[in-house]
Design a protein around this nucleic acid. Sequence first.
DNA 1: CCCTGTACTTTCCAACGCAAAGCAACCCGC
DNA 2: GCGGGTTGCTTTGCGTTGGAAAGTACAGGG
Lengths: 131, 131
Amino acid sequence: MSKSESSDTAQYAFDGLDRVLHEKARLGMLSSLMANPQGLLFNELKDLCNLTDGNLSRHMQVLQDAGLVEVWKGTQGKRPQTLVRMTEQGRERFMRYINVLEQIVNDAIEASRAGKQVPNARRTGWDWSPA
Amino acid sequence: MSKSESSDTAQYAFDGLDRVLHEKARLGMLSSLMANPQGLLFNELKDLCNLTDGNLSRHMQVLQDAGLVEVWKGTQGKRPQTLVRMTEQGRERFMRYINVLEQIVNDAIEASRAGKQVPNARRTGWDWSPA
DNA sequence: CCCTGTACTTTCCAACGCAAAGCAACCCGC
DNA sequence: GCGGGTTGCTTTGCGTTGGAAAGTACAGGG
């Protein structure tokens, strides 16, 4: 079996793509919270991200455990309400992630521009067959 | 349980984030292949994305089944070699995905600029306690 | 009282990613 | 010419995860 020479040659390994952040639902939540730094209520967030209750609850916990958001349990009268906000660390990590995304996007656009018309050439001196 | 009003209010649902594409390893593979439209050999791709053999094999199949890449089995002398290329559909879907990413990135940068200094204000008329 | 609604939490299961093991063909030394 | 190593992948097995559904808790309303 072959060895991996780490990121020396691996320019497309995308090490910066943090698993916790790189996830549809969570990315949506964090984006919402970045746009609403004062925090969002459980149901506001749920609607913004189009998540089910259970789903949101689950992902919220993940983000909280990771220290990316802070969760406040509150009441008005006696109705419980949960408020979520980004932490400072959350902001930082999110922006770091976004920077990686930006890089990927730029590279992709660059690549797609560069490789517009590709010849049908496979490698010569080989016999290829599909699939 | 609450209903989801679809994407009317759900501006952060990120429906465009195709699951097949939105995945570290696969995103890396596709980026590599976009940058090398003539195709890449199994091991070239493996090194570029810093993947193990098994891993690459698995993800390649997923991408192939999704119609995003085409796979050519070939030989030189008698050594087998696998060549992978983007399909036209692959290119399209990838760029669509990248456009969504771009949007997310721009929104995030915008949001982070806008919400620089946030007051510590929670919602008034409530009693909050952490976690 | 009970029943409906709100506000979440927990449970369960299928799908997925990843590492390790497996397989097949070739090449080399002796 | 046949064992052992190498190359080039594939397959298997397992631990983790995301998501739907079910569950809990409490608060009005009839």
